[in-house]
């Protein structure tokens, strides 16, 4: 069960495929834009947006070239977009070169994120973003 290279890569691939297909579905169903929030469990149960609510809308405005609008909807969209753009390329390169640079980077990031000096500011940022989300009423 311990996370090894292949497991991480398959999880990332599944996540990217799901992300891209979700994006495709949301883009083609542009008329019912309010539907894009309906997968979120927290939003369903409590009617309060979760910290990452709105990242779909954020990425959708990014694809239309509206980068300021994307930041206004939810800055987490930028992180998601970055991972979704980088992960597939990195995985393919790693698989072809038979390397595991992505896995090593992932593990390095994990140990970095566990340090309180990085963890506490990031948690605060997420909470501030969450408060902003609720205030915006996403």
């Amino acid at each position: 069960m311990a996370l090894d290279r292949n497991k991480l890569y398959s999880i990332l691939t599944i996540a990217c495929v799901a992300g891209y297909s979700w994006l495709y579905i949301s883009m083609t169903n542009n008329l019912t834009e309010s539907k894009s929030v309906e997968v979120c469990l927290i939003k369903h149960v409590t009617n309060i947006p979760c910290p990452s609510c709105g990242s779909t809308r954020s990425i959708m405005s990014m694809t239309k070239g509206d980068f300021v609008g994307a930041l206004n909807v939810n800055p987490i969209g930028y992180i998601v977009a970055l991972i979704m753009l980088m992960a597939p390329i990195w995985i393919v390169v790693d698989l072809i070169m038979k390397n595991n640079t992505l896995f090593n980077t992932y593990q390095k990031m994990e140990t970095l994120l566990k340090r309180p000096t990085y963890a506490i500011p990031l948690v605060l940022l997420v909470i501030i973003n969450w408060i902003w989300n609720i205030a915006k009423g996403l």
Partner: peptide, 17 residues
């Protein structure tokens, strides 16, 4: 202690639920 997967779950709303 699965920080990486935790971040993944956080920024995707629990992996689309």
């Amino acid at each position: 202690g699965d920080t990486g997967l935790g971040v993944g779950k956080l920024i995707t709303c629990g992996g689309f639920g």
